[in-house]
Amino acid sequence: MPENTQEGFIDQQKVLDNEEYSIKNTQSIIQKAVDWFRARSMFVLAYGTGCGAIEMPPIFTSRYDIERLGVVGVATPRQADILIVSGYCSYKTLKRVIRSYEQMNEPKYVIGLGSCTINGGMYWDSYNTIKKLDEYLPVDMYINGCMPRPEALIEGFVKLQDNIRNAKSEAGYIQYRENNAFYRANQEKIFGKNTTPTFEENFAGMNQ
């Protein structure tokens, strides 16, 4: 690249102005590396809340083999990065889902699987299932379909990896932390007195 000419200078300027190399982003290079690693190792807690659980065995076994993307199933919330809410949530389940989600360590992401997590799906007029999951938990990725095919699931995972790697949108757990009052209010609206305890309440219980 000729540096001493006008064109060369402009080219250099373009490189510096490019967001990826700009000085204001240099602090986040470590962050970028971390995000890249994060995207390549997703530990999944597949909570079988509904029908979607039946497509979990195929994608975790030899035919679709999602492990090649770095996605591995784990048993407990405390080890997991991703919570899959696989299908409709009844009241009783939603309460357990929220508890599982709150036990997970940050960073954490939620995948809503199936039409029924988006808008009620088949059970839009059922008295016992919730209609919009994102009112109660911050959903990072919805995968629609009833039920979604394994290919759709893999596509969803790849998209989520993209989002994590490029930090395209603000991650759900930050929203959950910052807008906690909104989520709590929605949870209290359907659970009433039986809402899961807040962090402070839990903590107060431990001190006694």
Binding site: T49, S90, K92, Y123, S126
Partner: peptide, 11 residues
């Protein structure tokens, strides 16, 4: 049980 109750018979 009851975690999967959707009220099919009502629907």
């Amino acid at each position: 049980v009851g975690y999967l109750h959707r009220g099919f018979e009502k629907l």
